[in-house]
Design a protein around this nucleic acid. Structure first.
Length: 264
DNA sequence: ATGGTTGTTTAACAA
């Protein structure tokens, strides 16, 4: 069976519900993983998704910030919300699809502006989150079997994942300590599916700041959104696609949807 | 070197 999964930091699911339906019409993913939904669960707009066939969902939201959701045309065998770092932040849900494929959807803390954990509590939280996730996937949730990890991981790990390695070395999202910790998480047993199809040195971005006058012209992007799979799914990978043009949509999110196709 | 924008919620914060 073919499985198409799209991950997207939508930056408010209520504001961009029409962009979500446009995306669905166009790509028809089987599974959609959203981040930064910014809505408490009772107010999540499930109806438009249900009408389009996404009758299975796991949603974890909160007022104003964060929020993740998995919306699926495939039934779930199980699903769960998980909290991290002793906080109630809605940053992770996971679901096991019919057939036993486990999907993890993360919204890793952005980390604030100052890349020093001793003065910036948000950056400390980000590093702790990455450590805790690494511990978790090393221990009771080992990445074996058929598993997919996606989301806004808020780290652009390689020099080819940012518009300027030099100019971003001390900018949160590309500092060596974050890259080291994201790499440790990857090495718990994952394969970077996007790079399987677009190996370095090809430049890849999934986010462009709202602050640029012309995002396309300046093209100061970063690859913050990721799709990882376990080795067991490597031979099932068929293609990946970063929908750059979505950054040019009216009232766009600052992130664009990223899609993977598998034959499972 | 700095400031630039957007979303939620309504002045301030997060990204």
């Amino acid at each position: 069976m073919s499985l198409r999964l799209t991950t997207w930091n939508i930056n408010s699911v209520r504001l961009r519900i029409n962009l979500a339906t446009a995306l669905i019409e166009r790509l028809q993913p089987d599974v959609i993983c959203l981040q930064e939904t910014k809505v408490p669960d009772p107010m999540f707009p499930l109806k438009p998704f249900e009408k389009l066939g996404y009758t299975h969902h796991v949603v974890a939201g909160q007022k104003g910030y964060h929020g993740v959701a998995i919306l699926s045309r495939w039934p779930f065998e199980a699903s769960e919300r998980r909290n991290w770092c002793g906080k109630e932040d809605a940053r992770h849900v996971h679901a096991t699809l019919r057939g036993g494929i486990e999907v993890h959807n993360f919204y890793i803390p952005a980390g604030g502006d100052e890349p020093d954990p001793s003065v910036n509590e948000k950056f400390a939280h980000k590093l702790m989150f990455l450590d805790e996730a690494t511990d978790w996937f090393t221990g009771r949730c080992r990445p074996d079997g058929r598993m997919i990890l996606v989301g806004d991981l808020n780290v652009a790990p390689s020099e080819f994942d940012v518009w300027s390695h030099k100019q971003l070395l001390n900018v949160v999202s590309h500092t060596p300590v974050e890259v080291e910790k994201l790499t440790a998480l990857l090495k718990t047993g994952w394969i970077d599916a996007i790079r399987e199809f677009h190996p370095e040195p090809e430049k890849l971005y999934s986010w462009w700041s709202y602050r640029a006058k012309d995002w396309r012209e300046s093209n100061r992007g970063r690859r913050l959104d990721h799709i990882w799979v376990t080795p067991e799914l490597k031979s099932s990978l068929r293609s990946v696609h970063i929908l750059d043009e979505a950054r040019g949509w009216e009232r766009a999110s600052d992130h664009v949807p990223v899609t993977v196709d598998l034959e499972v």
